[in-house]
Simulated scan of single mutants.
Amino acid sequence: MLKRLLLVLSMLAFAAPAGAVTIGDDGLHKQDWFSITFRDIAEDIEAANEEDKRLVLVFEQRGCIYCRKMHEELLTDPEVRDYIKANFKVVQYNMFGDEEVTDLDGEALTEKTAARKWGYVFTPTIVFLPEQAPEGGSVAQAAVVTMPGAFGKSTFLHMFQWVREKGYETGEHFQKYHARKLEEGRAAGENATD
């Protein structure tokens, strides 16, 4: 009896590893720290600003292997997760979803028509918005940078850091910033390679 109990407990431990990510009814991977909003972009930018954070939209789709990688390998990494949670308000979008979205120009769309309007075709696509909502225009026009796809930990984290530090305003291209951060990490004895 004790052997069976131990076997069941060990199976449960392997079935749901620590930091396991859940999948919602929409088929998207979920993080309990992502924000649930009414998807009014101007209001979301303002709400993020009130929290001294930046708004980030993450477009995903059901069955996306790169989205799974992002959730299971990057967003569960304590260094990455804690940095993003402290500095960004993240709202998840379903590239083929039907929830209503209000663009910065006031147009009401569904998630899928917003993705088409803004030109997002890859998942995940991570969209970084400015600190202040601009008058009119679209999310695609207002975005300070858009990151299509999932990358390695260093590239992923450095993009969030570059946006938080407003690298897009300093003239230091992200690739130069990333190379500098990797070199600084190597000099400090870190094993950063991507």
Rank of each mutant, 00 (worst) to 15 (best):
A192G: 03
E73D: 15
E51D: 10
A47E: 06
H178P: 13
H178G: 07
F160H: 00
Q92T: 15
K176P: 04
G24Q: 10
A115V: 12
A48S: 08
C67V: 13
E169H: 02
K117L: 14
F14E: 05
Y177D: 08
G27D: 09
A47L: 12
D103S: 12
M147N: 03
N191W: 01
A42W: 09
V163K: 04
K117A: 12
L55M: 09
I45C: 07
A114P: 06
K69P: 00
H173K: 15
L55G: 02
F14G: 08
E165N: 09
T37A: 05
K112T: 14
G185Q: 10
R62Y: 11
V163N: 02
I41W: 03
S154Q: 08
T155L: 10
G19K: 11
E169C: 11
L74C: 02
A18K: 13
P148C: 08
A150W: 09
S154H: 05
F88R: 00
L57T: 12
G63A: 10
N87V: 01
P130H: 06
K112P: 07
M70P: 05
G119E: 11
R186H: 11
A42P: 04
L75M: 13
G19W: 12
V80T: 13
E72W: 02
T123L: 06
D32W: 14
M70Y: 07
C64T: 10
C67T: 09
K112M: 07
A142I: 02
M70K: 10
E111D: 08
R186K: 11
G185C: 06
T37R: 03
Y83C: 03
R180L: 06
E99P: 05
K89P: 00
E131N: 09
L55D: 02
K69Y: 14
D77K: 08
G97D: 04
P78E: 09
K30S: 11
R4L: 08
F151N: 12
V56M: 03
E131V: 00
F38S: 13
E169M: 13
V139D: 12
S138A: 04
L129F: 09
V90Q: 00
K117Q: 11
G106C: 13
E135P: 10
G97T: 06
G171M: 08
Q161V: 03
Y83S: 02
A13L: 15
L5K: 13
H173Q: 11
K89I: 02
E184P: 00
I126P: 01
G152A: 05
I84T: 01
R54E: 01
D40P: 06
F96D: 08
I45V: 14
F156K: 01
F88G: 00
N94L: 14
N49A: 13
P17D: 06
E46Y: 00
E172K: 10
I126C: 01
G24K: 06
E107Y: 02
L75R: 13
T76R: 04
F59R: 06
H158T: 12
E50W: 05
R62F: 07
F151I: 00
F156D: 01
F156V: 04
